[in-house]
Structures are given as structure tokens and as C-alpha cells.
């Protein structure tokens, strides 16, 4: 067994274990962290497949951004395990049915008939100087230009829709408009300078004790 094969089994085992933990852990934060681990080991598997760009981008996008936001939301949830488990028996038959259908479907698609070296011969390993990123970029922006552009427009529509759905103006919240805030001028907006004639020159008090008396005189 070569070292690469050994690495593959190590990462594959960790991925499966982490994926199992994601759906069995009670604590949602633990589940999300195991999902992160599953992503990291999947990225390692992709790198073993010579798909370095995809592997690094999986870490960058899913682990570095998406899962951080996920964790952000999950940490604030107060999950009540008892209510979650309340309908377990009631939904069990339906759930089992869905599981069986999904398992059959997956078997048909990724079953042993569709795998193996005779169905897909192993591709020749690429040289060390082949830039994965460059090859992928060239393909995406020449051969697959229209699918890429259509996918990006669909994503843009999803972003706009999500923002529109969550955007609501609540008149009761006190909102600071930064552009108005920074444009405040000292002159008219913040203080009013009142010009007034000075009164007669008041003699400076000789002692500190004469202060209160002084004040009364000026008034």
C-alpha cells in the first residue's frame, strides 16, 4: 500500500466519522464543527485527486466563510432537544421510507457497476508544472462561458431576492445615518454661536472667596 493510498484511507475514514457525528451529536455547535472537519478532510481528498484549486476553494469558501456564518447563527440558537425529539416515533415510518428510496437511488447512481478501474481507467498523473487553476480558468471562461454566466446571474437573483425579503424598515428603531452624521458641520448643525454685546468690564476678584458675590453682580 503506497503512502498516497494510506493518506486516502485516513482522510476518508475521518470524513465518514465526522459526517456521522454531524447527524448524531445533540449539541448543534458540535455538529457544525464536525461538519467543518468533514469539509476539511474532503478538501484533503480532493487535493489527493490533483484538484488543488477545488480543494483550497472548498476550505476558503465553505470553511472560511459559509460555516463561520452557520456557526454564528447556531451559537445564538437556544435549541430545546426535548421538543425536537417529541415527534420522533410519529415521523419514523415516513423518514424510513425516504431513507430507503434515497439509498436505492444512490446505489443505482454510484453503485459498484458504475465504478472500478475497468469502467473509469485511472487518469495519467499530471506533471508538477501543470497549474490546476489556470487549466480550470481557461475551460470555465472559454468552453463553459455561458453556463458560468447563467449560474452567476441566478446567484445574483438569489442575492437580490434574499435581501429584498429581509429588508424591512421599522420606524421604531433608532437608526443612525452615517452619511448625515459625518457631514455635520460645527457651525449650523451642532452649536449655535450667539453674538451679544459684552457688558461692562467686571473687575477681577482679588480673592477666591469673592467669587459668588461677583456672579451676582454680573447678573
Amino acid at each position: 500500500m503506497g503512502f498516497e493510498k494510506f493518506l486516502f484511507y485516513v482522510f476518508a475514514l475521518i470524513t465518514l466519522w465526522a459526517a456521522g457525528m454531524v447527524i448524531t451529536r445533540r449539541n448543534p455547535v458540535h455538529a457544525v464543527l464536525f461538519l467543518v472537519l468533514a469539509f476539511v478532510t474532503s478538501a484533503a481528498l480532493w487535493i489527493l485527486l490533483e484538484a488543488e484549486f477545488l480543494g483550497i476553494v472548498l476550505i476558503l469558501v465553505y470553511v472560511g466563510a459559509v460555516m463561520v456564518l452557520f456557526l454564528f447563527v447556531v451559537m445564538m440558537l437556544d435549541v430545546d432537544i426535548a421538543t425536537l425529539r417529541a415527534g420522533f416515533i410519529r415521523y419514523l415510518p415516513l423518514g424510513a421510507l425516504v431513507t430507503v428510496v434515497m439509498a436505492i437511488e444512490m446505489f443505482l447512481v454510484v453503485g459498484p457497476a458504475n465504478f472500478g478501474l475497468d469502467a473509469f481507467p485511472a487518469p495519467a498523473p499530471l506533471g508538477a508544472d501543470v497549474s490546476n487553476t489556470r487549466e480550470l480558468g481557461l475551460l470555465l471562461y472559454t468552453v463553459y462561458l455561458y453556463p458560468v454566466e447563467i449560474a452567476s446571474v441566478i446567484l445574483l437573483v438569489a442575492i437580490v431576492a434574499a435581501i429584498r425579503l429581509t429588508l424591512r424598515h421599522r420606524p421604531d428603531t433608532k437608526y443612525i445615518d452615517p452619511s448625515r452624521q459625518v457631514s455635520v458641520k460645527k457651525g449650523p448643525d451642532r452649536i449655535r454661536i450667539v453674538k451679544m454685546a459684552t457688558e461692562d468690564q467686571v473687575p477681577m476678584p482679588a480673592l477666591a472667596g469673592g467669587h459668588s458675590q461677583d456672579k451676582e453682580e454680573t447678573e
Binding site: L33, E52, I59, G64, A65, V68
Partner: peptide
Amino acid sequence: DINAGLLYILALTSLGVYGIII
């Protein structure tokens, strides 16, 4: 000396936040 060095650094620096969150 890897080809995707910049991408690697960007991916790794994005992991540092987990220490803080956890």
C-alpha cells in the same frame, strides 16, 4: 513552492477565526 500559493494563504488565514469563535 506551490502554484496556488496566494490561494493557500487566503484559505489558511480564513481559518484563524475559528479559534476565536470556539
